[in-house]
């Protein structure tokens, strides 16, 4: 039977589809997160949360060219960065919650991002390091799954610690849970660092396996059905 089918279709293709809702929320999340990171760097520069004599270069931060902004509005870019930050906040909050709801209700999380385990993580990490890890479109290994859970946790941490910094009076209990206002700022910074770390790996991997990127944009990607080991 399968032999006969094989003769009719010369190359059988595995089709991987990415639902529209996942693609839309993915790119909206990406946009919002980039805005929040860029503007967050500018905000950080004004009064660094870390006790380091170091700042983010202005040109990679979001908030306009300080001299141009000064001429346009009479402030040198902090107000602009804050406006980006608290504007994109709503985009991220809504888009991320929609994605979480979809992931939970559709079974996407259970199907694609579980199970995970420490031993499986180590096994897949070793296999990946030795180049022995099979890759099939739409299937995540345990290292990837763990990273996705990690970044989702980091985003939640950012939203909650951000709330503790933004509203230390209305949510004073939350700010207290984060160890107070100043500590909450440090945690908010560390969460950013974790997300940036994820982004570096995530973007590098998607460029190494362009079909994943294709599927995240167009919604569909194919690979030969027998392809299991190749990238």
């Amino acid at each position: 039977m399968s032999a006969a089918l094989g003769r009719i279709t010369p190359r059988r293709l595995r089709v991987h589809r990415t639902p529209l809702i996942v693609r839309v929320t993915h790119w909206l999340n990406a946009l919002a997160i980039l805005i929040m990171i860029g503007s967050g760097w500018r905000i950080y520069n004004w009064y660094p949360a870390l006790p380091l004599d170091w700042q983010f270069p202005v040109w990679i931060s979001l908030g306009g060219d300080p001299r141009v902004t000064q001429g346009l509005t009479g402030e040198d870019g902090l107000a602009n960065a804050l406006a980006w930050h608290f504007g994109a906040l709503w985009l991220l909050a809504i888009s991320f919650v929609v994605y979480l709801a979809y992931g939970l209700l559709s079974g996407h999380f259970r199907r694609d991002l579980l199970p995970i385990s420490p031993s499986g993580f180590v096994r897949d990490l070793m296999a990946a390091a030795q180049g022995r890890l099979a890759h099939r479109l739409g299937e995540q290994n345990i290292v990837q799954r763990t990273l996705y859970w990690g970044v989702m946790l980091a985003i939640v941490l950012m939203l909650v610690s951000g709330l503790a910094i933004w509203k230390p009076v209305q949510f004073s209990g939350l700010t207290w849970l984060f160890g107070g206002y100043e500590t909450a700022r440090v945690i908010h910074f560390l969460g950013m660092a974790a997300i940036v770390g994820f982004l570096v790996v995530h973007v590098a991997l998607s460029l190494l396996v362009p079909k994943t990127l294709q599927s995240m944009v167009t919604g569909i990607a194919t690979e030969p059905a027998d392809e299991g080991i190749s990238r």
Binding site: L31, L34, I35, G38, V58, W59, I60, S61, L62, G63, G64, D65, V68, T69, L72, G77, N80, A81, W84
Partner: peptide, 11 residues
């Protein structure tokens, strides 16, 4: 975004 952040977008 990374390219444009420095100047154009915000102003």
């Amino acid at each position: 975004l990374t390219l444009l952040t420095g100047c154009d977008i915000s102003d």
